[in-house]
Design a binder for these strands. Sequence first.
DNA 1: GTCTATAAGCAGATAGAC
DNA 2: GTCTATCTGCTTATAGAC
Lengths: 236, 236
Amino acid sequence: MNDKELDPTKKSHSREALLEAAERLFAEKGYEAVSTRELAEAAGVNLGAIQYHFGSKAKLFVETVHRMMRGSGCARAQFALTTTPTSAEDAATRLCKFVYSFLGYMLRPQGPQPCRLMIREIFTETTRDEEMYEALVSTVADEYSKPLEDTLIANLRLLADNKSQRELQHLARCILGQCTLYATHRPFIERIMNEDISKSPALEELAEHICRFTLRGLRLPETFIDNVIANASEKV
Amino acid sequence: MNDKELDPTKKSHSREALLEAAERLFAEKGYEAVSTRELAEAAGVNLGAIQYHFGSKAKLFVETVHRMMRGSGCARAQFALTTTPTSAEDAATRLCKFVYSFLGYMLRPQGPQPCRLMIREIFTETTRDEEMYEALVSTVADEYSKPLEDTLIANLRLLADNKSQRELQHLARCILGQCTLYATHRPFIERIMNEDISKSPALEELAEHICRFTLRGLRLPETFIDNVIANASEKV
DNA sequence: GTCTATAAGCAGATAGAC
DNA sequence: GTCTATCTGCTTATAGAC
């Protein structure tokens, strides 16, 4: 990358093309399911380029995850939690908006989905290689999970200011867990409900329920909750 | 199996041995990561036996999942929710106990873990084969997810009897989601907290927090919650 | 039903020409 | 830096003897 800035004319187009193709393919199909040949073809480069630029498929993968995590500022930016909240009502509205957009992101694939990618690869322990696993976990934790959790906490703090940092962490995870379940268990849930949960009335219903349940878990008054949910859903 | 009862002398020992080895290995490492050779060796049978008895590795896998789901009565029995609750307090205590044991089950591997197995395979869409995927999803949904959800709902109904069936489903999933997150995101969470969350004070702290948050989400009074949590944790 | 030997294919990695 | 051709090792599945 820095090489590119130094010499923009004849620098490795294939490295960049590979990273872009890898981002898309790995996120779509998972590490194991993508072969180096497929990767090279999709990038329009030679098979040998993978070894030349990255040394191995695994190292290309680690590099891709790095890029994804840094590149998109995935966590906060994507879910409209960038600026700091000003009031309790503001914080609650932001949290609700987050739930709406996070749920939509998990259930309506459009473009690469870093979150899905990582959950999958880490949970399945895709790479038995210790060193690489460590690299993956730390990248994702530092560049994605931690910032996302911190942003949620910043909003939660205004709604439960007597809580310790540790309790706020728990609360953040309660929200994330409720959303994530619909991604990890989606096929089962859709079979039970006999309904596509990414379609429009269903998705909003799920989001609203999660918001309401969460705000009740924070012991907020019902009128406040109604108000916040109305605000959040109209502005999404 | 019924064959075995009919003719105990010369009936296929290898079929059974394969299913047992498959249950353990697939749950441990995942479908892709287990080779047919490994399977045959672990079962102490010949490689050809897999093709002979099941036709393919994939069909053996489907058979294994069937067996797991039916066999252990996984959902309810495992988490002490078998009998029907008698009172609101009883129901709440059961829910808390469920959270404790479900969390322990997800985070402290001992023996095959059907739940983990399915989440992983379904989420990663391990098999591209349409027919097989359908078989997996329906088995798991019918034999595991649905019964588990129904049992949770039976308890939730006593705590929120003015709710519709659909709302009760949502509530059940709020509980499951909070627990499941700690399994799917475990490496990230442990890195952030710098702590093994399956160890003893940590696990109980997580469980207690989930219980408290959930019961608050149901708008139950704080004294009731304290009482229930005290009951549940001492009896676990 | 169980075995051995082997087929057929695809994976990731490499050597060496240009 | 990019290419082709190839190596090595693994996978699942099969054919046919016993």
